[in-house]
Design a protein around this nucleic acid. Sequence first.
DNA 1: GCCTTCTTGAACTCATGAGTTCAAATTAGC
DNA 2: GCTAATTTGAACTCATGAGTTCAAGAAGGC
Lengths: 216, 216
Amino acid sequence: MSAARAAAAPAPPTARGRIDKRQAILSAAIEVFARDGYERAGVEAIAAEAGVAKPTIYNHLGGKENLYRAAMAEAAARSKTKVLAAVDGFPTTGEDLRAGLRTVARSLVDCHISPQGWALSRLLYTEAARFPEVYDEVQTEGGRQINEALAGRLARLGNAGVLRVPDPVLAARHFMALITGELAARTAMGTRELPEEELAGIIADGVETFLAAFGT
Amino acid sequence: MSAARAAAAPAPPTARGRIDKRQAILSAAIEVFARDGYERAGVEAIAAEAGVAKPTIYNHLGGKENLYRAAMAEAAARSKTKVLAAVDGFPTTGEDLRAGLRTVARSLVDCHISPQGWALSRLLYTEAARFPEVYDEVQTEGGRQINEALAGRLARLGNAGVLRVPDPVLAARHFMALITGELAARTAMGTRELPEEELAGIIADGVETFLAAFGT
DNA sequence: GCCTTCTTGAACTCATGAGTTCAAATTAGC
DNA sequence: GCTAATTTGAACTCATGAGTTCAAGAAGGC
């Protein structure tokens, strides 16, 4: 019986009993939803991916809709942590500003183009009509916080006289737009690989335009 | 019989026989796919919307996948026409450049945020994994052409000395990024209305940053 | 060791939706 | 008008997937 399951699931022959099933289910759900989309994703497939029986999912999370909500909350939390860490690397002084901006931009882009990052964006957009609350939660709890953090760092640089940012929030939005604006189109919303050199070029170009607009 | 169909379909009591069924089917398909997504859209619903019987769809277009491809090609063609017309309004002289840029930006944004525009983007992204050829066709046939047209106009302004655009293609990309970058997030990929004043603000801000970066 | 609690597998039910079939009705071409 | 092609409605088939049920099995607490 265990052997049959192990053959169907990539997961190791899971220990039985109540361990960290819930976490395993959420991780598997994120992966399968990301790969197949909400509609095409099967609860059975998620169960297999998690190395768990189907009723266990219904015990823990009640149903597909609720499972989706919980999985998205988990994914959003993970993503937010990463992005805020990336913003933390923002330069605080004008010393080698161009290089500093490129480094942060690269970190931010890496968050965006990671499989997890794309999965989150794609599902948010795709299911925005069906799950508006999920969209709002991620957007307000996540997106706004990130923008605020970025704006704060830009304001510091403005204060130090190395940038001209009368409206730091706007500058933060345009920074993100210039850096990440083309990623969706270029990678087909994360379904294509982007050559390293192309990525570096996009970032360098974005930083350049940003500096042309907001530098002193 | 005709009365029963008219009750189910919003379409007028269609004349029978081989008229413009195909066009009606494609228009209905665009609408239903846009509203419900590929997976949730039902062929039966499309038939009802088109005021046509289900077998007629299979006669004309063979199946759901093919119907999707044809509908997307139609939608892309319509969209491209509109966008290229918008680019045509681009200023060619430096006279009142700011106002001219805002006007074009507004036209471009209007194409983007129209229900048809969002439908196209959303479906392209959502189904990029399942229909990569559709994505490529629209992206290369449409996106590239639009970017080229925009770059051409920017190059003229550069030549006239009112803009500093060593790389017109790059400038075109950044123009679009600054103008349309936030629209997806703000409108939840077109599922929310955006207040007119907010939209005007986004455009004005985008043009301002663009001029700061590329103006003389 | 024992009892409670959770997990499992397997076989269900039930709804939905793609695609087909076909005789009857309708239309277009002439 | 007459004929050939097309459209229609309605009733199919068939596959898929959500959610449930239940008896048997496996931890974990004591």
